[in-house]
Amino acid sequence: MITANYIKNEYIRRMPSAFCPGCGDGQILNAIARAIDHLKLPRNEIAAVSGIGCSAWIPSPYLRVDSLHTTHGRPIAFATGLKVANPKLKVLVVSGDGDCTGIGGNHLLHAARSNVGITVIMVNNGVYAMTGGQVAPTTEHEYKTVTTPYGNPAFALNVSEVVAAAGASYVARWTTWHMNQLIRSIEKGLTKKGFSFIEVISQCPTYEGRILNMDHIQMLHWFRDKFKTDEKGVFRIGEFVDIEKPELTDELQKIIEKVRK
C-alpha cells in the first residue's frame, strides 16, 4: 500500500514546502511523485525541467529527481535540447500558465508541432500568481484579477485545444479535485512516445481566491461541481487526444542512419 509517508521519504527532497496554505501545487507534487512510483521508473532515467513561477518550484527543490530550473518561459526549449541530446531520458516539464502560454507560448506550439517526446504539465490557476496576481492569457472573460478589478475584458485561451490542434500526441485536462485521474494521465503521458500535454486547473487561494471571494475549499468544490467530462459542466475536462505519431528524436535517428550509409 502506497502511503504518503513512503512517497515523502522516497521522492520528496525536503518539506515543509514554500507554497501557501491550501495551494494546489503541493497536490500536483504528490500526484507526480505517485505517478513516478506507479511506473517504477528509476530516478536516474527521469529529468524534470521548470521555468519561473510558483509551479516551477514543484520539481526544482522538492522532487527528488535530476532537475533543471531555467529562464522564464523557456523550460520547453531546454527540455527539447535535453531530449534530443539523450533520447533515453524521460523529460518532464512542470510549468505555470503564465510561463507556458504567456511568455513561452511560442515554444509550446512548436514543441507540439514537432512532436518531441517530452511530457508537459501545465499548472493553470488563471493568474500570474508569483508576481502578485496579474491578468494572464488563461484568465476567463469578466473574471476579476488584481490588474483587472472590473473584470477581464479579453477572453481566455483554451490551451488544451490549441495544443491538440498543433499536433500533440496526448492532451488531457484535469483539476486538483480529480487526483486519481490526474495521476493516471501523468503515467500515460510519461509512457507516451510523442509530445504529451497535461493541463491541471489549480487553486490559488492567495491571489485568485481573495479577489473572487473564495477560499481554497470553495475553489475545490467549484472544480467538483463545474468541471465535468461531459456537457453538464461549465468547463470541459478529460482526455482530448490520445494518438500515436512519429516522434522527433526517432525521426532524427532515421536521418542519421540514412546519411551515414
Partner: peptide, 12 residues
C-alpha cells in the same frame, strides 16, 4: 486525506 494533503503531513 493522504492523497489530497499538499504537505504530506498526515499518515493513516
Amino acid at each position: 486525506c493522504e492523497l489530497y494533503c499538499p504537505d504530506f503531513a498526515i499518515e493513516v
